[in-house]
Computed example of a mutant assay.
Amino acid sequence: MSKKIFIILLILLSFPTIVSAHTTVSHSTPAEGEVIRNNLLEVTVNFTEEIEKISTIELLSKNNEIPFKRVTVEDNKLIGQLEKPLENGSYRISWNIIAQDGHPLTGEIPFTVEKEKEEKEKKEETNTVVVNENVTPENIANDSTNIVITVVITILIAIILFGFIILGRKRG
């Protein structure tokens, strides 16, 4: 039995064990797949360990890069500050870091911006007057005539029905 254990240990020790202790993303703002509904002026990616100062971050919309006003690396955090809030659409954060152990790592974090329209835009929409180009004096006169004819016909039908009801009572 001890021979079997020795052989098993020898086999296990003969294969080098690869320990993967690289840093990973602990969380980000925005998070992966998140839908942002307000103005976003800063993007942050936090890692489980410190990262090197030469690490970089990009913000992409489709294949267009949206430049950051400033990018900073603070211990285990990559921070990108934007000039102006993002418009509605799909985005992805692309990060390239060098971990403290010297290993380069990359990744992407997709997210979406779906803000409601601003108050000014809402007011402009509610104050919009819809002009019907088909409205002419003739059409207005025709509509008025149609209304009068409908009212007269309705009154005549009511009188006729009333007459039948009264005649029916007198006979019975």
Rank of each mutant, 00 (worst) to 15 (best):
R169V: 11
N127S: 10
I54Q: 10
L12A: 03
V148Q: 12
I51R: 00
I18G: 03
I36C: 07
G168V: 00
G89A: 10
L10W: 01
E42I: 13
S26V: 10
E74G: 01
N64F: 11
L59N: 04
T48H: 02
I8D: 03
V151K: 12
N88D: 15
V130K: 14
N96Q: 12
A99F: 03
T136W: 01
L60W: 15
L105K: 12
T24I: 08
I8Y: 01
T128E: 14
I8K: 04
I51G: 01
T106D: 14
I109F: 08
A21M: 03
V152M: 14
L59V: 07
L12I: 04
K4V: 01
E114C: 05
L82Y: 10
I140E: 09
L41V: 07
L10I: 00
I51M: 02
T29M: 12
I109Q: 07
E116F: 08
V71H: 04
F68S: 04
L12Q: 01
E58H: 11
I7R: 02
A158E: 04
M1W: 01
A158W: 06
E116T: 11
T29D: 13
V130P: 00
N46A: 11
P104D: 07
K4S: 03
L156I: 13
L10F: 07
F68V: 07
I11L: 11
S14F: 06
E52G: 00
N64E: 15
E58L: 11
E65L: 09
T145V: 08
A158N: 06
G33T: 09
V131T: 12
T56Y: 00
S2T: 02
D101I: 13
E108Q: 15
N142V: 01
T145N: 12
H27I: 05
N132Q: 09
E121V: 12
L40Q: 10
I157M: 10
G80R: 07
V73N: 05
G168N: 12
N39L: 06
I153K: 13
H103N: 14
K3G: 02
I11G: 00
I93G: 06
V73G: 03
K170E: 06
F15E: 01
F162L: 13
T29P: 00
N132S: 08
I166D: 04
L86F: 03
L59S: 05
E118I: 09
T154C: 06
T72D: 14
I11F: 06
S14G: 02
K62N: 14
V130M: 10
F111P: 08
N64D: 15
I18K: 11
G163F: 09
A141F: 04
L41W: 02
V43N: 09
F111V: 11
P67R: 11
I157Y: 04
E108A: 10
T24G: 05
H22A: 08
G102S: 11
F164K: 05
E52R: 08
N96W: 02
L59D: 04
F47Q: 02
E133A: 12
N63A: 08
E87N: 11
H103C: 04
A99V: 02
E124P: 00
E34H: 09
S20T: 08
I93F: 08
M1S: 06
T154A: 15
N142C: 00
T44N: 14
N64H: 12
E114F: 13
A141T: 06
T17K: 13
L86E: 02
L86M: 05
I109S: 05
L167P: 00
E65S: 14
